[in-house]
Design a protein around this nucleic acid. Sequence first.
DNA 1: GCTAGGATGCTCT
DNA 2: GAGCATCCTAGCC
Length: 196
Amino acid sequence: MKLRRSWYERHAPDVAIDLLGKVLARKLGEASLRGRIVEVEAYTGREDPGSHAFRGPTPRSRLMFGPAGHLYVYLSYGMHCCMNVVTDANGVAGAVLIRAVEPLVGTQCMASKRGNRPSNQLCNGPGKLCEAFAITRDQNGADLECSDIWIEDDGYVVGEMARSLRVGLSAGAELPLRFYLAGSPFVSQRGVRAIP
DNA sequence: GCTAGGATGCTCT
DNA sequence: GAGCATCCTAGCC
């Protein structure tokens, strides 16, 4: 069942926790790609110094202030794209960064984009995930309710969830807003090292 | 096994 | 012009 816009219209940390175990889906021409979300980070608005929305809306971050259920994709370190889901409503900024998924369908297609690495290294990081799913800034602003990218609930029940500090931040690093499925071999390497 | 460092270009001050 | 919500490889235990 595809998640609808109203599902995303909640505070980012709540959406982040509920996104664990859901399925990220993309139709790419004839191919169908699916992966189970195993690692996310929540970014809130003005009160979060690690968030792009901290200083208010800018040409880049204004999407975070817009309607929920859209993609916010930006270029990181000049090379890698990172994929966020916009959350909250009524002009409140919020987003959830999808950091890692477990490949379910279209693994061969993902591997071909990722140098034929093993399946647990196809999508275990935000940049890798975008490469495997062919997500670029062209998808910035895409509507998850009516585009070729969406997230669905297939009834999967998550096991133990773990929580930690967010990865790679210089500001706002002290907030424990990273969530992942404990013991999953598909969680990002940087994230693993960040756990005390 | 682990760490350090370089690639690379957009975004905001 | 400085600073990144990263990834990969080489080099060294």
